[in-house]
C-alpha cells in the first residue's frame, strides 16, 4: 500500500498533475452521469403523457417532435390534500430532526468527555441498537403509545407527538454513534485548558463541543431530515389507521396511483415536487460541511 502511494505522489508532484487531474475529473464526471441517468429519465418522463411513457423510452423524447406538457404536475398540485400533507410533513419532520440531534449531541459529549461507571458498556449497548430493524418495534411501540398504554395515538394531535418520539428513538443510536465519534476526536487539549480555566461541562459543551462539531451535526441533521421526510411506513403505521388528516406527503404521494398500480405517471411529478424541500435543506446546510473549524481551534 505505501509503496503504491509513493510513485504516484512523485509523478503527480513533477509532471503528471494536470493529466492526472483530468483523468480524475473524467472518472468523477462519468460516475456522476451514470448516477444521474435514472433521475434524468424520471424527470423527462414526468413531463410526458402516460401513453408515451409506456410506449417508448424516455430518451426518445429528447429528439423532436417534443411532446412535453405539465399535466402530471397540474394533476398533483390540484389534489386538495397535497398542501395539507406538505404541512403535516413539516410538522412531523422538523421536531423529529431537532429532538434526536439535540439529545444525541448531549449524549455524545457525555460519552466522549465525561467519565462515569459503565460508560463504555452503555455506548456499546446503544451502538448495538443500530442492528434492530425498526419494523420489529412497531407492535410494542403501538401498544405503549396507543389505547393500551399512554394513549398518545389516536385522533387529534397526539399522533404527532407519538411519531416524534418514534422517529427520535429510531434515529438516536446512529446519531449518538456518529456524533460521539466526531466529538471524541476533538483535541483533548481544548477541553483540558477549558477545565483549567474553570469551565464546567455545560460551558464546555455549549462553548466548545457544539461549535466545533457543527459539520458533524449538520450532516447528521441532513441524514435525519431526509430519513423522516422520506418515511412512508412509520407514518402509515402510527398515523394511518386512525388519523387520516395528519398523514404526511409520502402517504399522499403514494396514494396518487391506484390499487392496481395504474396512474403511476403522477408519481414521477410528485417525486420531483417532494424533492424540492430536501434539496433546499441540503444546500442550506452544505456550507457547514466545508467549514470545518476544528483545524484552527487549538492554535487560537
Amino acid at each position: 500500500m505505501t509503496p503504491f502511494d509513493r510513485p504516484i505522489e512523485r509523478t503527480s508532484g513533477r509532471r503528471g498533475r494536470p493529466s492526472r487531474k483530468v483523468v480524475l475529473n473524467l472518472i468523477v464526471i462519468a460516475i456522476m452521469v451514470l448516477w444521474l441517468v435514472p433521475t434524468f429519465g424520471l424527470l423527462f418522463n414526468s413531463f410526458r403523457p402516460a401513453v408515451d411513457v409506456s410506449g417508448s423510452g424516455w430518451w426518445t423524447s429528447l429528439v423532436p417532435p417534443w411532446n412535453f406538457n405539465l399535466d402530471n404536475y397540474r394533476h398533483v398540485l390540484s389534489q386538495n390534500d397535497i398542501g395539507e400533507a406538505f404541512v403535516n410533513s413539516l410538522f412531523i419532520t422538523i421536531p423529529s430532526t431537532i429532538i434526536p440531534v439535540a439529545v444525541a449531541a448531549f449524549a455524545a459529549y457525555a460519552f466522549s468527555w465525561m467519565s462515569f461507571r459503565g460508560r463504555d458498556l452503555l455506548f456499546v449497548v446503544i451502538v448495538g441498537l443500530l442492528v434492530i430493524p425498526l419494523q420489529t418495534t412497531f407492535i410494542p411501540l403501538l401498544r405503549l403509545l396507543g389505547p393500551q398504554g399512554i394513549e398518545l395515538l389516536g385522533p387529534g394531535v397526539g399522533s404527532f407527538v407519538a411519531i416524534w418520539f418514534a422517529h427520535a428513538g429510531y434515529g438516536l443510536p446512529f446519531a449518538i454513534y456518529l456524533l460521539r465519534n466526531y466529538m471524541g476526536g476533538l483535541p483533548r487539549e481544548v477541553f483540558e485548558s477549558a477545565a483549567i480555566d474553570g469551565a464546567s461541562h455545560v460551558t464546555a459543551f455549549f462553548r466548545l463541543a457544539v461549535p466545533m462539531s457543527v459539520p458533524a451535526i449538520a450532516s447528521l441533521a441532513i441524514f435525519q431530515f431526509l430519513f423522516v421526510w422520506n418515511d412512508l411506513l412509520v407514518a402509515l403505521i402510527f398515523i394511518g389507521a386512525t388519523n387520516a388528516p395528519n398523514l404526511p406527503l409520502t402517504v399522499a404521494v403514494a396514494n396518487l396511483s391506484n390499487s392496481l398500480g395504474g396512474e403511476w405517471q403522477f408519481l414521477m411529478a410528485a417525486a420531483f415536487l417532494s424533492m424540492i424541500l430536501p434539496l433546499a435543506v441540503f444546500f442550506a446546510l452544505q456550507r457547514y460541511f466545508v467549514r470545518g473549524i476544528t483545524g484552527g481551534a487549538v492554535k487560537g
Partner: peptide, 12 residues
C-alpha cells in the same frame, strides 16, 4: 402491514 400491527396493538 397496517392491519396486522393494528390487530396486535388495538389501534384500528
Amino acid at each position: 402491514a397496517v392491519l396486522t400491527t393494528g390487530v396486535a396493538s388495538g389501534i384500528l
